[in-house]
Lab assay of single mutants.
Amino acid sequence: MAAGGDHGSPDSYRSPLASRYASPEMCFVFSDRYKFRTWRQLWLWLAEAEQTLGLPITDEQIQEMKSNLENIDFKMAAEEEKRLRHDVMAHVHTFGHCCPKAAGIIHLGATSCYVGDNTDLIILRNALDLLLPKLARVISRLADFAKERASLPTLGFTHFQPAQLTTVGKRCCLWIQDLCMDLQNLKRVRDDLRFRGVKGTTGTQASFLQLFEGDDHKVEQLDKMVTEKAGFKRAFIITGQTYTRKVDIEVLSVLASLGASVHKICTDIRLLANLKEMEEPFEKQQIGSSAMPYKRNPMRSERCCSLARHLMTLVMDPLQTASVQWFERTLDDSANRRICLAEAFLTADTILNTLQNISEGLVVYPKVIERRIRQELPFMATENIIMAMVKAGGSRQDCHEKIRVLSQQAASVVKQEGGDNDLIERIQVDAYFSPIHSQLDHLLDPSSFTGRASQQVQRFLEEEVYPLLKPYESVMKVKAELCL
């Protein structure tokens, strides 16, 4: 049975990233139509530049190519590739079939990587351009969430054990800070992308030097003109047959890092959902379990974690691919890159769409948070109580021993009897502590235990987050809708 299948058929496997999760716009960027249309555009740009620099290419040939950029006979191309065992030459023939007058000058002087690699770089750039505003929107939604809850005390956790208090907004800023680093890295790697350009079979530009009869300047002009037509500021000066596969490492490393950030955020949300302090959106008709109707599973956060793990592992592909590119190139890269580049971007696209949807509907339960604080705060307040007693004339050592005994009794009630923490009640009825009984409410005010959390939130948002989001103001209103 021949390899390949009808990918629109229910009898043929289709990647869930495309069929179930990723956005239509990201799927289109990695589609065959987008790819092969870009090949034709690159052939047109090459012909236009070659004509401008004096090669015998007519206006009629150029116009014929322009008129057929979208006229792609995919069936013919597939048949040609089956016959020739070469995808680029299959599309040269297919393009030439609908451009008979231009057929002889299509791909003039070029090698397969002229269309293959340059198209990949265009796709990487455009895919990054799709991700950047999506990530900015996630940051914006979380920034709104953090600002609104900047002063809401909550129990902090280290080692997932109760620690000092923080605020809900401050905790959210930990998430935002990681995503801001990801946004900066995505922008950097996007701006650092260079075009492969017009380089020939081993990167020496020998074929173009021959076409222009040894004119170095025209060869350099050709490279520059096509690079500018493709919208790049610069091209690699040095290439082998391909652009260095280190570029793929750079791009997928940034995406993998984004995956790590999203995994951490969504894990926190899942843990908070278990504590009943916070939940992701839950639709009115949504079913959490087929057997347990009360369940409210954090399905979206779980999906993000599941896909983020996949995204983090994909960076190993370009690392290994770059390491086995012998001399000017081997074909070890080809099949692998067809999979890992598309999957990385479709996965990143999915987790950003999902995280935006989550961040637009996060639900906080202040009463649950308050109750958990009441359970733990008495123990945390013991040092403040000791200091207040010393100020009232008591002995630190005597007070410490009193607190120690009462704390152990209260802990026994919590752990052995399943009761509430009654340390404060014990202190309130103990005559030894009568000098500070009137101060206990103040000493137990949760806001006095959150330090500068709310001020940190305000400063972080104003100095770091809002300036970073400013270039994306025009796209901030787009909502994230999930079908599944």
Rank of each mutant, 00 (worst) to 15 (best):
174 L>H: 11
196 R>W: 01
430 D>I: 09
401 E>I: 07
42 L>V: 12
293 P>C: 02
191 D>W: 08
94 T>L: 15
138 V>F: 15
256 A>E: 15
88 V>F: 02
189 V>Q: 15
90 A>H: 03
243 Y>K: 06
141 R>M: 15
218 K>S: 11
353 N>E: 14
224 K>G: 09
328 E>P: 01
290 S>L: 02
258 L>K: 03
95 F>C: 02
24 P>V: 10
263 H>Y: 05
140 S>I: 14
97 H>P: 00
293 P>V: 04
336 N>D: 07
204 T>C: 08
239 T>W: 01
159 H>Q: 03
32 D>M: 14
314 L>G: 09
386 I>M: 00
361 G>S: 15
110 A>T: 09
26 M>Q: 03
416 Q>G: 11
266 C>N: 06
385 I>S: 07
133 P>M: 13
361 G>Q: 14
334 S>W: 05
220 E>T: 11
396 R>N: 06
77 A>E: 07
295 K>M: 00
150 A>L: 07
459 R>V: 11
238 I>F: 00
184 Q>P: 10
259 G>A: 12
41 Q>Y: 14
343 E>H: 13
414 V>E: 00
322 A>M: 13
453 A>C: 11
117 D>G: 02
305 C>M: 05
432 Y>H: 10
190 R>D: 08
310 H>P: 01
47 A>Q: 01
205 Q>R: 01
226 V>N: 01
86 H>V: 02
348 A>L: 08
60 E>C: 11
117 D>A: 01
118 N>R: 00
85 R>L: 11
328 E>V: 02
146 A>D: 00
402 K>L: 08
159 H>E: 00
12 S>D: 03
264 K>V: 05
236 F>S: 08
207 S>L: 03
271 L>Q: 05
254 V>C: 10
290 S>T: 10
123 I>W: 06
43 W>V: 00
475 V>S: 13
404 R>D: 02
362 L>N: 00
60 E>M: 12
204 T>F: 00
459 R>G: 13
399 C>A: 14
335 A>Y: 06
132 L>A: 13
82 K>R: 11
229 K>R: 05
94 T>N: 09
72 I>R: 01
434 S>N: 09
141 R>K: 15
326 W>K: 00
419 G>L: 10
405 V>K: 13
290 S>H: 05
334 S>G: 09
134 K>R: 07
231 G>W: 04
219 V>K: 03
10 P>M: 15
293 P>K: 04
286 Q>S: 06
448 S>C: 13
398 D>A: 13
414 V>I: 15
201 T>W: 02
327 F>R: 01
399 C>Y: 01
339 I>E: 05
309 R>K: 05
454 S>T: 13
6 D>V: 09
65 M>G: 02
40 R>K: 04
